[in-house]
């Protein structure tokens, strides 16, 4: 979680390389997806809530927007958890993309309700694209847990 927030901070610097800005992926989607896949937990939703709130404060979006979007994606993956377990890596990547799409769609709808205006779909798509590239980090997190000793679960 701390690593994700650290990377978010690092990608928030106003840097331009050859007039191009850095992308802005949602690093917090990685633990939100992995925690839902690993196992149901009482602490995980509050961890996701905390990450979302920190994102909102750091990015200057309405407080609760990203918290709610991440929790929506987390809840959907938690519900579909039985279908996900044991799937191959490309399939899991597709599921991760679906989770990112759910979070983006939720953010789009909540923003529409809050600001009474539609965000640019192209901007939403670019952020979605940058976020789904982060799946290898989520896979590593899931693998680490699956390889761990079951006695300590």
């Amino acid at each position: 979680m701390l690593q994700c927030l650290g990377w978010t901070l690092a990608f928030g610097i106003p840097l331009r390389v050859f007039t191009l800005q850095l992308p802005e992926p949602v690093f917090c989607m990685v633990p939100a997806f992995a925690w839902a896949v690993i196992r149901p937990s009482i602490l995980a939703p509050f961890g996701v809530l905390l990450m979302g709130l920190i994102l909102d404060i750091f990015w200057g979006s309405p407080v609760g927007l990203w918290a709610l979007s991440l929790l929506t994606a987390y809840g959907v993956i938690l519900l579909c958890r039985n279908w996900l377990v044991g799937q191959s890596r490309p399939m899991m990547w597709a599921w991760f993309a679906a989770a990112c799409a759910i979070a983006s769609l939720a953010g789009f709808l909540f923003t529409r309700l809050d600001a009474r205006a539609s965000p640019s779909l192209i901007a939403v798509f670019w952020q979605f694209l940058a976020t789904i590239l982060l799946y290898p980090f989520a896979h590593r997190l899931i693998d680490r847990f699956e390889d761990a000793d079951v006695r300590f679960r």
């Binding site: 196992r39 149901p40 009482i42 939703p45 809530l49 309405p62 609760g64 918290a67 709610l68 987390y74």
Partner: peptide, 26 residues
């Protein structure tokens, strides 16, 4: 039951997030 408690925790977190979002006027 772990699944039920996780669901309750998720609902509580969602309620908190909704309340915060509705009260925000940046």
């Amino acid at each position: 039951p772990l699944a039920w408690t996780a669901a309750v925790a998720l609902i509580v977190a969602v309620v908190v997030a909704v309340a915060l979002l509705m009260s925000d006027r940046r």
